[in-house]
């Protein structure tokens, strides 16, 4: 039974990856078309590639979530207890946030970045870190595993999109300052709007991150008897929190709006990725058993 469900999970994951590849291609074709459009803003009706790409993302995400759910049922606990499962579930959350954020603002132009992120995450996760279903180690047997890790992944998802927007904002600001740049930028929101969107998305991420930090401390107190011990993972969670706190202050600081705060968002996101990859895999610490 366990093996069957796990094999369903694998089939769903590989199918999701195939659909994401198609979606990524469609998103890039859309960007290419924007480049060729001489820069006039066109409504979504005139964007066939984007519409196909977004439909594919939804299909891919359904498969992706099914993959995570099968894995969860196969083992009888949440599918984010090791590196493979975390890469599986966190990328599903990233794509999910990307899909649902469209109800708030049309940010489909970062679709290529999001699908690429999901593909890399799933690709590396399945090939390098796949482990067969194992029982839950007693150290992770706590409802805080459900809360703490899930909210961390949710925060990460917002940071991914926030950083993508900050990156586009930088390109857009460059174009607006009269430098030679990509034509497709003319079809995207202006730098100030991008900055506002990026700020809002990152702030939501920051709130989740704060919650992750506190939930993690409460769990650490339950599990290890101290809520804070400067374990390497704790250190990096703290560093990320401080960088984003700086990012929020930058918005209220004269001379720090625009490019500088965009760079802070990108640095913050790089630290999140560093924490997720290098710290998980190469740094020694109490969180290391959750890695592989």
């Amino acid at each position: 039974m366990i093996a069957t469900l796990d094999s369903y999970s694998q089939v769903a994951i590989y199918s999701a990856m195939a659909v994401y590849v198609l979606s990524f291609i469609m998103f890039t074709l859309d960007l290419a078309k924007r480049s060729a459009s001489k820069g006039e803003l066109v409504g979504s009706r005139r964007r066939p590639f984007e519409r196909i790409a977004f439909a594919l993302v939804i299909l891919g995400w359904a498969l992706h979530v099914a993959g995570a759910v099968f894995r969860g049922f196969a083992q009888g606990f949440v599918p984010w207890a090791n590196m493979f499962e975390f890469s599986l579930t966190s990328s599903a959350i990233v794509v999910g946030v990307f899909i649902f954020i469209q109800f708030w603002q049309n940010l489909k132009f970062v679709g290529a970045v999001v699908t690429a992120f999901a593909l890399i995450s799933l690709g590396v996760g399945t090939t390098n870190y796949y482990v067969p279903v194992k029982p839950l180690p007693p150290a992770l047997d706590s409802y805080w595993l459900i809360i703490h890790v899930f909210v961390a992944a949710l925060g990460t998802a917002f940071f991914v999109i926030g950083a993508a927007l900050a990156f586009v904002q930088l390109l857009q600001a460059r174009r607006e300052s009269g430098k030679k740049s990509l034509t497709l930028l003319k079809t995207l929101p202006d730098a100030v709007r991008l900055e506002n969107h990026s700020y809002f998305v990152n702030v939501v991420g920051f709130v989740f991150w704060t919650f992750t930090l506190i939930a993690g401390s409460i769990w650490a107190e339950r599990a290890w008897g101290r809520y804070w011990g400067w374990d390497t993972k704790e250190v990096w969670t703290f560093i990320i929190w401080v960088i984003y706190a700086g990012y929020i202050h930058a918005r209220a600081t004269r001379g720090w709006r625009g490019a500088r705060s965009a760079w802070l968002a990108i640095i913050g996101f790089s630290s999140v990725m560093f924490n997720y990859t290098v710290v998980n895999l190469f740094f020694k610490g109490l969180h290391s058993y959750s890695g592989l």
Binding site: V235, W236, V242, A245, G246, H249
Partner: peptide, 16 residues
């Protein structure tokens, strides 16, 4: 505040 926050983030790195 911004300066000290960024400095704090950098200063925390060596401990990891």
């Amino acid at each position: 505040a911004l300066f000290l926050l960024l400095l704090l983030a950098i200063a925390a790195v060596p401990g990891s």
